[in-house]
Design a protein around this nucleic acid. Structure first.
Lengths: 150, 150
DNA sequence: CGGCCTCATGCAATTTTATTGCACAAACTC
DNA sequence: GAGTTTGTGCAATAAAATTGCATGAGGCCG
């Protein structure tokens, strides 16, 4: 993980569709050497995967919402069970257990209010372990990146 | 955006490193036709970009935190100014203005506590417009995907 | 200091993959 | 139902990734 690897990771996080030759030129290496580095970053798991990032609006998912959840029973196994249940929902893109007043936080990608209604119905019905939940809607997105600073 | 496009988007969101021929076989098209569809999805902006997703732990960013922010003055221009400032921070991976009690929510990728300390110092110093902020740490990640259901 | 080992590199050949031109077929319009 | 648009598959071509091999740099130990 020297300076060249870091630069490669930075470039690949921004745009992984560039050709190996371009990347090689950018970091000042030959294509073969550059390719071997990238492959190593894959094999060692630093690069987890290559994915297409969609434009949510054009993919029909304009609405974003954040739900914070407080459980009745806060034990680890209960939190885990709730997270597992939430993770199964395709509209849930992030699900965390967190420190502090609330136990869990969900980030949602929604098509419309009906979808939210149906989802909360499924996750927060009476027999569930949820004491309270609070839904906030995203009004404006100032930043949204998959890029991790290296 | 027919059924084949949807399937392509699903596959590309999961793994964009597969060859065009593989994808073509998967959706039941010829390579050329498949390629033209993918190109169109790019041009129309449905596919925003292709990126490498890193393993945070192996990239040296183990810590995740969520900060909710309440501003002194809640006007749109103040919220916007705060979001712009937060967006400049590399450790901030998501920055939203939200409805409800709090004005903004930040998602952070951190190396250690010192980094958090330095960041809060920069964002929440006295002359800023921040009335209150609350930091929660992510204990467990139940789900974290870039995939939008189509 | 020098030999030895390991590892990354560049070059060039090879293989694989993406891309394009073209003719045909489906769907849609009027 | 003729004409137009749009999508498709095939085959040729262009571009890109991948590999073998020889070289050179750096580290380690005697």
């Amino acid at each position: 993980m020297d300076k060249i690897d870091s630069k490669l990771l930075k470039l690949l996080q921004q745009d992984a569709s560039r050709t190996n030759a371009e990347l090689a030129a950018e970091v000042g290496l030959s294509p073969s050497s550059c390719l071997r580095r990238i492959r190593r970053l894959h094999q060692t798991g630093v690069i987890d995967r290559i994915v297409a990032v969609l434009n949510p609006a054009k993919a029909g998912r304009t609405m974003k919402a954040i739900i914070t959840v407080e459980l009745e029973r806060h034990g680890e196994q209960y939190v885990r069970r709730f997270l597992d249940m939430a993770a199964k929902e395709p509209a849930v893109v992030q699900a965390y257990s967190v420190s502090g007043e609330t136990d869990a936080l969900l980030m949602l990608r929604l098509k419309d209010m009906d979808e939210l209604d149906a989802l909360t119905e499924r996750l927060f019905r009476e027999e569930s372990n949820v004491a309270r939940y609070y839904t906030a809607f995203v009004i404006r997105t100032g930043k949204e990146t998959t890029e991790i600073p290296i």
